[in-house]
């Protein structure tokens, strides 16, 4: 039986659309399509590959390295995220403005 595939649009790569199987990670599918995204641990234990989910839903294993604040800001980990439906995403460190904060700084002073 043909595996279910979803269309994932990478908004900040010229709106490129990649086909991602339900059991395939967005990272792997993007790489196969010629897009080298940030990557490191490749198991959801670090946030090097983080990007933003703009629309649609993905499946990620529990216990990924994203904290609540980062998840609420829309980040997902491309190395473990698998699409459940068609999605639009933004990738790369250019999306990381809200990912990091200085832990000694006041919450209201965090940089965008």
């Amino acid at each position: 039986m043909a595996e279910q595939k979803h269309r994932v649009t990478i908004n900040n790569r010229g709106g490129a659309v990649i086909e991602v199987a339900e059991d395939q990670t967005i990272y792997d599918a993007a790489l196969a399509a010629g897009f080298q995204l940030p990557i490191a641990c490749n198991y959801g234990g670090c946030i090097t590959c983080a990007g933003k989910l703009l629309s649609g839903r993905v499946r990620q294993p529990k216990g990924t390295a994203l904290n609540k604040r980062q998840s609420q800001a829309g980040y997902i980990l491309m190395c473990v995220a698998r699409p459940k439906e068609d999605c639009a995403i933004e990738v790369g460190v250019e999306t990381h403005g809200q990912l990091y904060r200085n832990p000694f700084a006041a919450p209201q002073k965090r940089s965008v």
Partner: peptide
């Protein structure tokens, strides 16, 4: 690693 790799959190 799962603690320090994502960054430092008090």
């Amino acid at each position: 690693p799962n603690t320090f790799m994502p960054g430092f959190d008090l």
